[in-house]
Design a protein around this nucleic acid. Structure first.
Lengths: 202, 202
DNA sequence: CGCACAATGGACTGATGGGTCCACTGTAGT
DNA sequence: ACTACAGTGGACCCATCAGTCCATTGTGCG
């Protein structure tokens, strides 16, 4: 990591990561080979090992980082500003659209299944992303509390956690079945129940 | 499939499937090899290809079927009789216990990620299991309606779908992080919101 | 201009692992 | 008991693919 990279080097490195991400999405983690990545990114094997000396796992880890950042970025600006019911609905739309477009490829899921529990870094990436995601949702709930839309004694963390789980579950089922009905149902129901919590205290 | 199997043959075949399931859970799908399975089940390569002529994918498919059945079986008898709030709570306990015990290994998820969209049969297995699961949940909600615990105009399918997504999401996060907090939060919240729907109509 | 080192090309290797083949043994049915 | 075929053992083959090595080209810098 401490290796010096020139401007050209940095460009090549990110070209590799982004190209690898594409290949992984298309071919799937199991089928994707270094040669596929070389072909896609117009690089040679020595370049791959120049930028990722440890080999494939290191590259996959870099791709995982890239994809994890992408997940949250794609939900902006709404995820960062959930301070009205309108914002929540718009966030909902973005999430559903994003995952419907993604279809049945799960870059992150398959990635960390491959390197998964074997390496410590992989789990940290996913955990960190989920944590930031949930924090944003929790901030949104708190914003609604501040706006008087939700009671102050609401269990914010549990709500945020179950909303996050709703999205994850919907995506998970989308990946399995190819249909987004569950994602829609889960997110809609989650927001609806949150809304109802503002009307009937409990 | 139409091949004749003697009692001995059937025994060997299921020994292979169950042993393979163990190996896949331990090693993970990516690392598990036919040799691992041979070692675990005390079989030879010719046996593997005798019972699964097409090769590895056919074996993995059989394991997927086995695991899918297991998932639903493990939730019985509660999942089949969700006609009171007590039954729902007991089902909740069983689900959480089951997945906490399973930990961060996801036999089904990884299995169909490997063969996934490539083969048509794989998706059918998961889809079928999810469908039966959701049907049981929907039946439970209807039972509560019949018992007067829930209003008759409740959208049963959406509730069932989002409950299923809640479980899936919780499990998915459990797999990623190793912590079951989200599973608990999502299922508890889901049941709590269902309960509240019985008090404040909407 | 020239040195040091980054960047690149691509042939080669070595091991892994799925799949094949044939020979041998057990067993069910007549 | 014999015969046909299921069941079993294990050596062998071969494609694939991650990883190595060295030679060559490009680039920043004093």
């Amino acid at each position: 990591m401490g290796t010096k990279l020139t401007a050209k080097g940095r460009a090549t490195r990110s070209r590799i990561v982004e190209g690898a991400a594409e290949v992984l999405r298309e071919r799937g983690i199991a089928a994707a080979t270094l040669d596929d990545i070389m072909a896609r990114t117009s690089t040679s094997k020595s370049q791959l090992f120049h930028y990722f000396p440890t080999g494939k796992d290191e590259l996959l880890l870099a791709v995982a980082r890239f994809e994890a950042d992408q997940v949250l970025e794609d939900q902006q600006p709404y995820l960062g500003r959930l301070d009205s019911w309108e914002a929540w609905e718009q966030w909902r739309d973005v999430v559903i659209e994003r995952y419907e477009k993604q279809g049945d490829t799960c870059p992150l899921g398959s990635l960390f299944l491959q390197i998964g529990r074997s390496t410590p870094g992989a789990r940290a990436i996913v955990t960190g992303m989920l944590h930031r995601w949930q924090e944003s949702l929790a901030a949104g709930v708190r914003a609604l509390q501040a706006a008087g839309e939700l009671p102050a004694d609401l269990d914010v963390e549990t709500r945020a956690a179950s909303l996050l789980a709703a999205v994850q579950g919907g995506v998970s089922i989308l990946l399995s079945t190819g249909r987004s009905a569950h994602l829609r149902a889960a997110v809609d129901q989650g927001i609806a129940d949150l809304r109802r919590a503002g009307q009937a205290p409990g």
